[in-house]
Simulated assay, not measured.
Amino acid sequence: MAVHAHPDDESSKGAATTARYVAEGVDVLVATCTGGERGDLLNPSYPPVEGGIEAMREIRRAEMASAARALGVRQRWLGFVDSGLPEGDPLPPLPEGCFAMTPLEEAAAPLVQLIREFRPHVVTTYDPSGGYPHPDHIMCHRVSVEAFETAGDPERYRGLGEPWQPLKLYFNHGFSMVRMRAMHEALVAADRESPFGEWIESRQAREIPERSVTTRIACADWFPARDDALRAHATQIDPDGFFFAIPRAIEAETWPFEDFELAVSHVPTTLPEDDLFAGIRPEGS
């Protein structure tokens, strides 16, 4: 189960890994916390959306369905409303009733119920920073950890299904500094413009700590599926923008992996790993 804050996050974080596991016969479910209805229109070629957040919600639901088909995953909505990304100094208050303002146990309840229904062995989500400081990403982390820790406890969240304890919890690391540096150096060496230079300088200037990568999944063969899923989110992804700025041949040669951090494991495993199911699969499978 991959838990994400908004539609499009499942296509930009760990998407090729999920497509690989689907191809191997794994049942993969994406849980999407919000409808992404307050997301900005980030594709300059997309026509203006009239009708406010209700219209955007319907568009993004259709985009999500197309992305899920591209990856081969199942997908469920947790039913919360996008909090938006507050901007300004001081920051404005978050909208009433949004996901990030929901009490933790109320926000975690539908995910606990979904875990007990789907019964995943592995759950992936974001690290405590959210990957970047969007309030929904940070809340997604909190909700995912709460659900992972309590779904197997019969005394918690009574009436939401039979307890089920997932065995491993991972954090996505799609934009790790080590990957960005490797891609930046490969692009410069190929005399190509790199989109990563300012990111690296910004993160260094802000002294953002680099989290540990414990698990690398080889998935270059599924980069095309990831790209199809990204393009499905036409309101959010510019087909001429950042996500497609790297020639795929250079990406596949330089960094044919997606990176994860093993946060919790209830099974023995040896680090580093090359499989999210290490310690779970029967030996020799």
Rank of each mutant, 00 (worst) to 15 (best):
A2V: 15
V3P: 00
A5M: 14
A5G: 12
P7H: 05
D9F: 10
E10N: 09
E10I: 06
A15E: 13
E24T: 13
D27L: 02
V28H: 04
L29V: 06
A31F: 00
T32Q: 10
T34H: 15
G35K: 08
G39S: 10
G39N: 08
G39I: 07
L41E: 15
L42D: 09
N43S: 05
V49S: 06
A55C: 05
E63H: 07
A68P: 05
A70E: 14
W77H: 10
F80S: 07
D82I: 13
L85I: 08
E87H: 01
A100D: 13
L104G: 07
E105A: 12
A109P: 01
V112I: 11
R116L: 01
R116Y: 04
F118N: 03
P120C: 01
H121Q: 07
V122R: 08
V123S: 03
T124W: 07
T125I: 02
P128K: 06
S129P: 07
G131T: 13
Y132G: 11
D136Y: 07
H137I: 10
I138E: 15
M139H: 09
V143H: 14
E149C: 09
E149D: 12
A151P: 13
G161N: 05
L167Y: 15
L167E: 15
L167S: 15
K168D: 03
K168P: 05
L169V: 05
Y170L: 02
H173V: 01
G174R: 10
M177P: 01
M180D: 10
R181V: 02
A182Q: 07
A186M: 10
D191T: 04
E193D: 14
E193F: 06
F196E: 00
E201Y: 04
E201C: 01
E201G: 08
R203Y: 05
A205Q: 07
I208S: 06
R216M: 06
W222M: 06
W222I: 06
A225Q: 13
D228V: 03
A229M: 13
T235F: 08
T235P: 11
D240I: 00
F242D: 10
F243K: 02
I246A: 13
I246Y: 11
I246V: 15
E251L: 08
E251Y: 04
E253M: 11
P256K: 15
D259N: 06
A263F: 09
A263D: 01
P268C: 03
T270M: 06
L271Y: 12
P272E: 04
P272H: 06
D274C: 14
F277I: 06
I280N: 09
